[in-house]
Design a protein around this nucleic acid. Structure first.
Length: 467
RNA sequence: GCUCCCAUCGUCUAGUGGCCUAGGACACCACCCUCUCAAGGUGGCGGCACGGGUUCGAAUCCCGUUGGGAGUGCCA
């Protein structure tokens, strides 16, 4: 009687959506899809000081961007942990009735003092046998039994903890509200969770949770602790130091598919010689047993490289579509933007950007009254000896040459050959005059799209500036 | 400090005792292509942390050392 697995993802709504959380969610989602099981989203909002409704919406939006769609039949939730507070408290009292928990009136100061006296760390179980009754201000502590607790972990194997190293932890706060450890277990039981796949930082919590499971008469779920994501200093990614907001990468023009693919390969790799594989293949191949054991560096460079691949793989139409939000932020007057022009230019920039946010700067000269002149580029290209001649000649030629990039190129090629100059050199002053930069989309195609009048205007302006 | 986890190119990884002279990807370098820049192509640089075992044979198993990391709250 093997039931379908029930996975869960249980973020706390403490801000934007963390890339580490995204990876954990993705692992759970991939497993859910392959096994035909269920993915439960539970918002862990028991700490009211951190709770904020807009963060919850942010989590759901971010997940849907990644393809974890809340309306998918295998998706369940969101549930809110705070809504189950009664059940958490009831479970706590049940544990007290059973003798698996006891009340304690010590303040953290008192605990510290005792620790100092005994020379040991943390709470020493002082109230264990004092037989205290419940009262305001008193916390309920779990009575950790003797022996050892073995956590069976799908990625790490068996991990044994001696119970002596686990202190009698708090179940209910002095104000009567439940703590994470308890709430988490009660909810997992309630929601019939069979697989807990979460970040490694939870591994030290696991024996405590497992103890609660068994005190409540249940057998623990299957655990799997995946390695944390770290920064270049090899420290766990933190929102203080590191760029961890999924939303931010989205705004910078990272494609969802690229993000998903990259995140999946942190700690795991698909079979074969390429890491760029479709989601369906990752769903098919992903196994917790194959997840690496050591922390993985979240490398934005590699993410960006993946993104470039995904951008290039887009059809021209989809690329144009993907660019749309970024085009609205362009540095040009909105009325000068021309979607038809962009459609023509798009294929020229598609192979030249690694993120969508790079697009506007690459094509701004099409929509600006005058190109945004890079002075360094001007100084570098307009001071060479032939600069004035080539711009002057081209400005003349452009008036009656056939309007095609081939003809434009042919003309400049001829001019260059006659003077034993390389086209690569002679195109530079023209490029700067037209676009304001030394690099950009192919010049002659750009000129063709820009149009004769605008081209003449820009070349003339450049000439007069050169004096 | 204590508990636990981890250790293959700079980075992400493949490798589950012989197929490993350790494979791929990102980054980097060179060359080719080329109207700039990209893209693409070709090639290169570069790694099993160290020391002991086990074994006919070890990147792979065991022990130790060293080095990283996580946790250590009336946070989640």
């Amino acid at each position: 009687m093997s039931e379908l697995p029930r996975y869960r993802f249980a973020p706390s709504p403490t801000g934007f959506f963390h890339v580490g959380g995204a990876r954990t969610a993705l692992y759970n989602w991939a497993l859910t899809l392959r096994t035909g099981g269920t993915f439960v989203l539970r918002i862990e909002d028991t700490d009211e000081s951190r709770n904020s409704p807009q963060w919850t919406q942010g989590i759901i939006d971010a997940m849907s961007w990644l393809g974890i769609d809340a309306s998918h039949p295998q998706f369940e939730g969101p549930y809110f942990q705070s809504a189950n507070a009664d059940k958490h408290v009831a479970a706590a009292h049940q544990l007290y009735e059973q003798g698996a928990a006891y009340w304690c009136d010590m303040t953290s100061e008192q605990i510290q003092e005792r620790a100092k006296e005994t020379g040991k760390q943390g709470y020493d179980g002082f109230s264990r046998d004092r037989g205290l009754e419940p009262a305001p201000g008193r916390v309920l502590r779990f009575r950790v039994p003797e022996g050892a607790t073995v956590v069976q972990d799908l990625v790490r194997g068996d991990v044994e903890f001696s119970n002596e190293t686990i202190e009698d932890f708090v179940l209910l706060r002095g104000n009567g509200t439940p703590m994470f450890l308890l709430a988490n277990v009660v909810d997992d039981i309630e929601m019939r969770i069979t697989h807990v796949v979460r970040a490694e930082e939870h591994l030290p919590n696991t024996p405590k949770q497992q103890l609660i499971w068994s005190a409540l008469g249940k057998s623990a779920p299957i655990w799997a602790h995946v390695p944390v994501l770290v920064n270049e200093q090899r420290k766990k990614l933190s929102k203080r130091r590191d760029k961890v907001a999924l939303e931010q990468y989205r705004e910078e023009g990272i494609l969802a598919d690229a993000m998903v693919n990259y995140l999946m390969t942190l700690g795991w790799a698909p079979a074969g010689d390429t890491e760029i594989v479709p989601w369906s293949q990752m769903v098919e191949e992903f196994r917790l047993e194959n997840v690496n054991h050591s922390p993985a560096f979240f490398d934005v460079k590699k993410l960006t490289a993946f993104n470039g691949e995904y951008i290039r793989a887009l059809s021209p139409e989809l690329f144009v579509l993907a660019c749309a939000p970024f085009l609205q932020q362009g540095p040009w007057p909105t009325d000068r933007f021309d979607a038809e022009v962009f459609d023509q230019v798009a294929p020229l920039v598609q192979t030249r950007v690694a993120t969508l946010s790079e697009v506007p700067a690459m094509i701004d000269f099409f929509f600006l009254d005058e190109p945004a002149m890079d002075e360094a580029a001007w100084n570098k290209t307009m001071t060479v000896d032939f600069a004035r001649d080539v711009v002057a000649d081209f400005c003349e030629a452009v008036r009656d040459v056939d309007w095609s990039h081939d003809a434009l190129k042919e003309h400049l090629e001829k001019w260059s050959t006659e003077r034993e100059l390389k086209l690569g050199k002679t195109q530079a002053p023209i490029r700067v005059a037209i676009t304001g930069r030394t690099v950009g989309p192919p010049l002659f195609e750009s000129i063709e799209i820009l149009g004769r009048d605008e081209t003449i205007k820009r070349l003339t302006t450049a000439l007069s500036r050169m004096g």
